[in-house]
C-alpha cells in the first residue's frame, strides 16, 4: 500500500520539480555570466504560456508530427517513474531496471528524431541526423555503465543498486568512480548540455535538439520542453540514486525517514544543478567531429570500470 502511495508521490514530484530544476540551472548560469537572470520559476510560466497558445502545424505534417510530443513526454515520464528519487520503496521498482530505462529514453529520442524529419525541412533532418549520431555513441556507453554497475552489485535494478551502495556493499571503489565519470559524460550528451549541444542556442549551425523541434509551437512545444526538463531531472536523480544514495528512505521507513529522503533528494538535485551550471559556464561547445572522441571516452571509462572490477576481484 505504501509502495503505491509513494509511487504516486514520486510520479507527481518528478514532474512538478522538473521546471524548477531547469530554472535553477538557468538562474545560476545567468548569475555566473554576470546577468541578473529570470526567477527559477520562469519555466512554469513559459510552459503555461505555451499551453495557452495555438499550435501551428505545417501542411506537410503527418500524424507522426502530432503524436511525437506526447509519445516523447510519456516515454520520458515513465522513465523518470522507475528511477528512485527519495525512496527505493516504489511500486515499479522491481519491474523496471536500467536497461529498460535506456530503452525508454531511446524510444523518446526515436520519436523526436522522426518528428524532426516528418515535416521535411532541412533543419529538422539535420538535427535528427546529428541526434542519431549522438545516440549511437551515447547508448553503448550508457549500457556499458549499466553493465559495470550490475557486475558490482549483482543486479540491473536501480533500486537494488542504491540499496547495495547504501548497505556499504561496494564502499569506495575505483570501478564506481570510473562509472560515475562515464555516467556524467553520457548524461551531458543525453541532455544536450554544453560541450555537446547548447540548450540555449538558436544559431543554425550549432543546434541539435533545437533544430529538430523548430517546427513545433503551442502545446506541442510545451510537451517537448517539459520532456526535456523531466529528462534533466531524471539524470540528476539517476546519478544521485546510483552513486550517492545517502539519505534515501528504504522499504519500511517511517514518515521522518521519508522526509529526510525528500530533503536529501532536493539537496542533491540542486547541488548537481549548481555543478552543471558551473561546468557549462567554464567550457566551450565542442565541434561535431569531436563527439565521437568525447563519448568514445565515456565508453572506454565504463570499460575500464569493468576491467578494474575484475582486478579487485582477482586481488
Amino acid at each position: 500500500m505504501t509502495a503505491i502511495l509513494l509511487q504516486f508521490a514520486h510520479i507527481l514530484l518528478v514532474v512538478a520539480l522538473a521546471p524548477l530544476v531547469t530554472g535553477w540551472v538557468r538562474l545560476v548560469k545567468a548569475r555566473l555570466n554576470g546577468r541578473c537572470g529570470p526567477s527559477p520559476f520562469q519555466p512554469y510560466r513559459d510552459l503555461y504560456r505555451l499551453l495557452q497558445k495555438e499550435a501551428v502545424i505545417a501542411h506537410s505534417a503527418s500524424w507522426i508530427f502530432r503524436a511525437a510530443p506526447y509519445v516523447t513526454f510519456a516515454a520520458v515520464w515513465l522513465a523518470a517513474c522507475i528511477v528512485p528519487t527519495f525512496t527505493t520503496d516504489l511500486l515499479l521498482a522491481p519491474a523496471a531496471d536500467l536497461i529498460a530505462l535506456v530503452a525508454l529514453l531511446g524510444l523518446a529520442r526515436f520519436w523526436t528524431a522522426l518528428a524532426g524529419m516528418d515535416v521535411g525541412t532541412a533543419f529538422g533532418g539535420l538535427g535528427s541526423s546529428r541526434e542519431m549520431l549522438i545516440a549511437s555513441l551515447a547508448e553503448p556507453a550508457m549500457l556499458m555503465v549499466t553493465f559495470s554497475l550490475s557486475l558490482l552489485s549483482g543486479s540491473t535494478s536501480a533500486a537494488h543498486i542504491a540499496a547495495f551502495v547504501l548497505s556499504g556493499g561496494i564502499g569506495l571503489s575505483v570501478s564506481l568512480g570510473l562509472a560515475l565519470a562515464a555516467m556524467v559524460m553520457v548524461a551531458i550528451a543525453e541532455n544536450g548540455r554544453i560541450p555537446i549541444d547548447n540548450p540555449a542556442t538558436h544559431l543554425e549551425l550549432t543546434m541539435v535538439h533545437e533544430a529538430m523541434v523548430l517546427e513545433y509551437s503551442g502545446r506541442h512545444l510545451a510537451m517537448i520542453e517539459a520532456a526535456g526538463m523531466v529528462r534533466l531531472t531524471l539524470f540528476m536523480a539517476l546519478i544521485g540514486c546510483l552513486f550517492m544514495p545517502w539519505g534515501m528512505a528504504r522499504p519500511g521507513a517511517d514518515l521522518a525517514e521519508i522526509a529526510i529522503g525528500l530533503g536529501a533528494f532536493l539537496g542533491k538535485t540542486f547541488a548537481l544543478g549548481t555543478v552543471l551550471a558551473l561546468f557549462e559556464t567554464s567550457i566551450a561547445k565542442m565541434r561535431v567531429f569531436r563527439y565521437a572522441d568525447f563519448l568514445g571516452g565515456a565508453l572506454l571509462l565504463a570499460l575500464l570500470a569493468t576491467i578494474f572490477h575484475y582486478v579487485s576481484e582477482a586481488v
Binding site: 564502499g171 569506495l172 571503489s173
Partner: peptide
C-alpha cells in the same frame, strides 16, 4: 585498513584518468 586501501586506489585511478586526459 580496507578504507585506506580503497582511498589509495581511488587516488591511483585519478592519476590514471589524468593519463587518459593527456591522451584526449
Amino acid at each position: 585498513a580496507h578504507l585506506s586501501y580503497d582511498v589509495a586506489h581511488l587516488i591511483g585511478a585519478t592519476v590514471l584518468m589524468a593519463g587518459f586526459g593527456l591522451l584526449y
